[in-house]
Amino acid sequence: MSKKGDQPSMERRQFIGGTIAAAGAVTIAPGVILHAVADTNQRTEGASSEHRWGMVIDANKCADGCTACVDACNSEHGLTDLGRPETDAAWIRTVKLKDKQTGNISRLPVMCQHCEHPPCVDVCPTNASFKRADGVVLVDRHRCIGCRYCMMACPYKARSFIHEALSDQSVSAPRGKGCVESCTLCVHRIDEGVMQTACQEACDKDGHAAILFGDLKDPNSEISQVLKKYNSVQIRGDLELNTGVRYRNL
């Protein structure tokens, strides 16, 4: 082969340069578009650290066989049953427990506990998992890369990964394939000034009133009064995460 034939022609160099540029564009473009979309948020007032939203749940009032809170959450946030329980999203679930020593039975709903020191936020590489100033732990769906490390880290198994493409979503909860999500404490309601979560509303409507939502920082709020008066526990209190969700009679 002649030496000249061995020399890469300019066209080939341009081709390689073009390929690199195209590969770069493919890597960067989706991010740029996402940021452009994210910037359209018009709300000007941020969450305030003067509040800390939380819940207290009375396990004694949680009725056997009732799924009102789960159904309400699913309908509020557009979580559909695809008939695949292992991959279907569950923001709230009911759990029935039996004490190994005494045989005592208790029942309670479990969801994101909105920790003060959330392990999901600690491990998230891109800051997609974050805690608002008012204590609500959320996932920024524009930043989540779907690594699922937060699901490994959450001690409450509170998070779900979106395993398929979704349609007919609820306006209050935009969701997307390949991202992680969990209970938002009905943040869309909080931001509209509605001080009641969908699960509490449903539980109250059914006459059980096991769930009470409110401001943990307001000493005069009903939730603060209840927590002051009665004994309550945190699930996995040993981890000292200072959860925003507390349980009575567990």
Binding site: G31, V123, T126, I145, R148
Partner: peptide, 17 residues
């Protein structure tokens, strides 16, 4: 879940993670 967002992983860092 979102390999197309690799750019996010390369530009957004949570140094506690």
């Amino acid at each position: 879940g979102r390999p197309d967002r690799l750019i996010v992983a390369m530009t957004e860092y949570n140094f506690k993670s």
